[in-house]
Design a protein around this nucleic acid. Structure first.
Length: 304
DNA sequence: AAGACGAAAGTGGTTGA
DNA sequence: TCAACAACTTTCGTCTT
């Protein structure tokens, strides 16, 4: 396994565990996050014997996606004639008509199933690429199914709605990703995802609280390699700031970044504004502005 | 040479008439 | 639908270490 070969750069331990809730590989001894963003490029199925492998592997010549049923269905002609062009009559004609009706029904059913299958495979792909834990993926799938049942998908792109479901699910599970992060693995734009998300949130009555900057501290902190102590400190700073109401309207990522920056200074683990800004995907200027505000309003004395 | 700081102008999204 | 608006970005010059 992958995990055996790794050595923790902080404490030298070779013991790691996979933190499913965050989708990260974490050192058992010191909590260092060893690798972020490993892309899961394996199959999503498992095979226990060659027979199953043969059945489950789906590689091979592509089926055309242009025909809605991938060109695999049989067509029943609408004319009541046989292959010689002779008129079909009587009981046989009724039978043919009945067959035709059933076939039409099945195709409609198939179409719905196929949309769902496509949506879920897309969801799988994105979740794997972002290394999101299973429970997030499942929450997203549940949201998508609900949206289908409420007929919210019709008239919008499946991609957009899947991305929206994933975005919502991340927030619901307390490990928010930004729209930018979702857009990076999605086939649709950030704007479209945002629109779909609002539409879905309204349609399904999801009332999600605005994302708290605190939820970003662990992830950004790990990316920055700051101690657990600093992450805790950053969270405390944020809680105090939230309590004083100086965070409203401000971007949560910028706030989390600034709090981490301050914490790194206070604990002598100095990070540059640039580094912090980078992991939070904001500019130095934003980090600086938030940092100024926090330091001023909370009377924090930072070391020179 | 690199980081921190701040001013000024530009951008995209929300809000309220 | 439009304009005002706040947050954030981009850019750039200056100061500090």
């Amino acid at each position: 396994m992958l995990a055996d070969k790794l050595v923790c750069p902080v404490c030298g331990s070779t013991e790691f565990f996979y933190d499913r809730s965050r989708g990260e590989l974490v050192c058992r001894v010191c909590g260092y996050v060893i690798e972020d963003n490993i892309i899961d490029d394996g199959p999503e199925w498992r095979a226990f014997d060659p027979d199953q492998r043969a059945k489950r592997a789906r590689t091979g010549a592509p089926m055309t996606l242009m025909i809605h049923d991938k060109g695999l269905s049989t067509d029943i002609d609408w004319r009541d004639r046989d292959i010689h062009g002779n008129q079909i009559t009587g009981m046989y004609r009724t039978k043919i008509r009945r067959l035709r009706m059933w076939q039409r029904r099945m195709r409609i059913n198939d179409a719905a199933e196929r949309n769902l299958a496509f949506a879920l495979s897309e969801l799988d792909r994105m979740a794997a690429q972002m290394r999101l834990p299973k429970r997030v993926k499942e929450a997203a799938a549940a949201l998508y199914r609900k949206a289908v049942m409420k007929k919210l998908i019709r008239g919008r792109s499946i991609e957009g709605m899947v991305s929206a479901a994933l975005y919502a699910a991340c927030r619901m599970e307390g490990i928010p990703r930004t729209l930018d992060e979702i857009a990076r693995v999605s086939k649709v734009s950030k704007k479209e995802i945002g629109r779909s998300y609002r539409f879905m949130a309204r349609g399904l009555n999801l009332n999600l609280r605005p994302t708290s900057p605190v939820d970003y501290v662990d992830r950004f902190g790990d990316a920055l390699n700051v101690s657990a102590k600093s992450k805790k400190l950053a969270k405390d700073i944020l809680h105090e700031a939230i309590g004083k109401g100086i965070t409203s309207g401000k971007g949560p990522t910028g706030l989390a970044a600034a709090a981490l920056y301050i914490a790194s200074l206070l604990n002598g683990e100095r990070k540059t504004q640039r580094e912090v800004a980078e992991v939070a995907n904001v500019t130095e200027v934003t980090v600086r502005n938030r940092y100024k505000e926090l330091v001023d309003k909370l009377n924090i004395k930072v070391p020179i």
